[in-house]
Design a protein around this nucleic acid. Structure first.
Lengths: 155, 155
DNA sequence: TATTGTTATACTCTATAACTATA
DNA sequence: TATAGTTATAGAGTATAACAATA
């Protein structure tokens, strides 16, 4: 029997995760730390509060991740120019190189996956995944809102 | 600009993950524990060694997960009929109900995602995802093998 | 009074290594 | 000698709450 669509997608997610872990095994980097680096790479020097929002984790957690990345010389904390409470987290030169390389490999992976799909199916796959992710986003948002209203009051 | 295919897939993976966490927030269950329950649900009563292999984690880790699931009355440890060193981990009645419900919801989610895709695109999406997951599996396996040979010797 | 980041504390997932009981 | 599971130990990710410095 054909696997369900949803099982294919779950498997693909696991494979991405596994590949990421393998790629950084034996280094100071972990999935969470790379996620933070990637976020700084795409948003430029940011305060830890901003990074907490962008990464979807607590500010306290960002402190720990940044501590580790300072230790491994992937980021620096620099003073915020106008707010003495805050710091800006920025990539070091070597981390900038690393992120540039990662972005290149990311694009290559995309090409490689695209080539694996039959040419005649590519447009449909792109449309289908767009529809699926947008539908999923709605489902997750609605479920969260339903829980919120149950917690908050007028259920 | 259109997001890359690979970014769509990563987003979908994150949404699944987030939905899972939300669904079990406020209960004793976590992603790792549900994964174990799901594995027992699909493989029947199993030894911890078997579960370690199926879940891809260390036997020690299974001990901890099973401890927690015994505490929350989702599983029982029962003696292995022929090997006194081993135990069989089996679901309690309530966990069986829970897994049956999860399986139903899983199928419903699949239907719902399928309905989100234009009817004319569905076959192409199914083919495309099959191709992508199989291609990814090859990539991950090859990368792991390359690392293995680097570690092991005749690179 | 609100915000930024940190210290304090705690829980979960994960791993390896040493050990016990059994095979 | 090998295998199943546990104890011991450790590190990483995560969270909340209390606190300092600053806004």
């Amino acid at each position: 029997m054909e696997p369900l669509l949803v099982d294919r997608l779950l498997l693909i997610g696991e494979l991405f995760q596994k590949d990421m872990e393998r790629a950084f095994a034996g280094t100071d980097l972990t999935t969470a730390r790379v996620h933070l680096l990637w976020t700084v790479h795409h948003n430029g020097p940011s305060t830890q509060q901003t990074l907490a929002r962008l990464c979807g984790v607590s500010p306290r957690n960002i402190t720990g991740l940044v501590d580790a990345l300072v230790g491994s010389e992937h980021v620096r904390r620099t003073p915020h120019p106008s707010d003495r409470r805050a710091v800006l987290v920025e990539l070091t030169e070597s981390a900038r190189d690393l992120m540039a390389r990662m972005q290149r490999e990311h694009a290559e992976l995309n090409e490689s996956l695209l080539r694996a799909v039959a040419p005649g199916d590519r447009a449909a796959v792109a449309r289908g995944l767009a529809a699926i992710s947008s539908h999923l986003e709605t489902l997750v948002t609605d479920a969260a809102a339903a829980e919120g209203s149950r917690d908050g009051g007028a259920g």
